[in-house]
């Protein structure tokens, strides 16, 4: 690529909104409002990048990933994959192309068919891309995928219930890789696992992304986990992205007050550090997306809020190079950091 050319991102979200109608009444259902689960998200993912998406329960992380997959259709905005807007493509066409997206879920047991052996599960996934592979060639492919995810190929005739939670997650990962997807969406893939098993799966995902150059959206509520696997991290609060940065920047120099609170709330397995560190404890619970506050969605819990914060939704602005954040008070909270725009 020539110098100065703008590299168009692999996946680009522009002001994406996913709203669910809220209806009332039984016989005559009236539309009385909307849950704005995703409300104006703009994000870009480069080829080969792992983008971590963190946020607390109900902030819209999973809705966003389903919208990218086109399992839910956006109420507004555009989602461009290699330049093409998926929101403008017919559902029929989307279904045909869905193999380009694969998901890995939190509960590997619920997402695997209990009556299918590992071989059948992976075979079916390979067939979506290569319908004519069979016989020995198929066995070779299944074996090689099992190898990649650290499962002994001799286990291919076994059923999901014969495996532990960690092994099941490996099967789910092999199944996701089988159709050679362009994008992997991993929604809390290690949250249900014990620490010792969690580290095995995180190591595996990190190795696979490195070796295969996978592009992945990695969703988790656990900043420690996200930090370990991601190239960049986007922080979400009540349907919006409030800050983006590298793992180091987010952990060490968070700009947005919500990110500051999130980082400061993580308990570190280090008693001396815990005894001395000053914690920013927020008041109240996250608000419901049914009834979001006006203005900045974080302002009712924000220790830095002032009258202006309740009036307008702050836009994501680059306060530092490649460090967009959505908070009008940043220049005052962080003296020396101003808006570049």
């Amino acid at each position: 690529m020539s110098d100065g050319a703008v590299r168009s991102p692999f996946l680009a979200l522009e002001d994406v909104k996913t709203h669910f109608p809220v209806t009332q009444g039984f016989l005559f259902r009236r539309r009385t409002g909307a849950v704005k689960a995703v409300d104006g998200v703009s994000l870009a993912i480069q080829r080969g990048e792992v983008l971590g998406l963190v946020g607390e329960s109900g902030c819209g992380k999973s809705t966003l990933s389903r919208t990218i997959m086109q399992l839910l259709r956006a109420s507004g905005g555009s989602i461009r994959l290699e330049g093409r807007d998926l929101c403008a493509v017919s559902m029929k066409q989307i279904r045909r192309e869905r193999i380009n997206f694969q998901m890995i879920f939190q509960d590997p047991y619920a997402s695997l068919n209990p009556r299918m052996t590992v071989y059948d599960t992976i075979k079916e996934a390979i067939r979506t891309r290569h319908p004519h592979v069979g016989g020995r060639a198929m066995i070779r492919r299944v074996s090689s995928l099992m190898d990649k995810v650290g499962l002994a190929p001799k286990l291919m005739r076994k059923y999901p219930h014969e495996f532990s939670g960690g092994q099941r997650q490996r099967i789910a990962i092999a199944r996701a890789l089988a159709p050679e997807p362009k994008l992997i969406l991993a929604d809390e893939p290690v949250s249900a696992l014990d620490v010792s098993i969690q580290s095995q799966i995180l190591n595996l995902l990190a190795k696979l992304t490195r070796e295969l150059g996978l592009t992945m959206l990695f969703i988790s509520h656990d900043l420690g986990v996200v930090k370990y696997i991601s190239h960049r991290i986007a922080v979400m609060y009540l349907g919006r992205i409030v800050e983006i940065g590298s793992p180091r920047e987010i952990m060490e120099k968070p700009l947005h007050p919500y990110t500051q609170a999130l980082v400061s709330a993580i308990p570190f397995p280090d008693p001396r550090l815990e005894r001395t560190r000053r914690r920013m404890v927020l008041e109240g619970d996250p608000p419901s997306p049914m009834d979001p506050p006006g203005g900045c969605p974080f302002h009712p819990r924000c220790p830095f809020a002032e009258a202006a914060c309740a009036r307008e939704v702050p836009a994501l602005k680059e306060y530092l190079p490649d460090r967009p954040a959505a908070c009008i008070r940043i220049p005052e909270i962080h003296p020396g950091i101003g808006s570049r725009e």
């Binding site: 420690g224 986990v225 280090d270």
Partner: peptide, 29 residues
């Protein structure tokens, strides 16, 4: 945390991602 006298306790501590630098593999049991 600082003077553990059991290999299991140590292994548990070393498998937590929050203290690790990116790129280094996590310890696994």
């Amino acid at each position: 945390f600082y003077n553990s006298a059991h290999p299991y306790t140590q292994a548990l501590q070393q498998s937590i991602p929050s203290l690790h630098d990116k790129g280094k593999s996590l310890y696994t049991i």
